[in-house]
Amino acid sequence: MSFILDYYNYWVVVFLMMAGFYIVISANNLVKKIVGLNIFQTSVFMLYISMGKVSGGTAPIVVEGVTQYSNPLPHVLILTAIVVGVATTAVGLALIVRIKRAYGTVEENEFDNKDDVI
């Protein structure tokens, strides 16, 4: 039991990662694929952020009387990764808009040509 409780952050991360990954593979709708990709990436953000927590430490802002702080570096890294994730989503959605214009559908099984199935 303590194995589950002590590492609950990792269980959350693993669950989200697999859920997102499964959506990317199984979804027929391209927008849903992007949603899955986002869940997948978000799980990694949580992995980073939860590893920066130092037990007993507070937010890394210098205050009198506090000696123990959480590690701010993973948070900073994830700010960058979030920006990358947003940019990827934007490019993905822009592609979907153009696919919709060109093919008239964003459902994979409705593409006329078999070569085009993603």
Binding site: F21, L37, Q41, V44, Y48, V84, L95, I96, Y103, I118
Partner: peptide
Amino acid sequence: DRRCLTAAFRYLVMGTIGATFILIGVG
């Protein structure tokens, strides 16, 4: 050619999964 769109989308999905795997590894 409109087929470049689906090719680019497939590349985006695969490429992002690859990059995210690298991110997990570095983490």
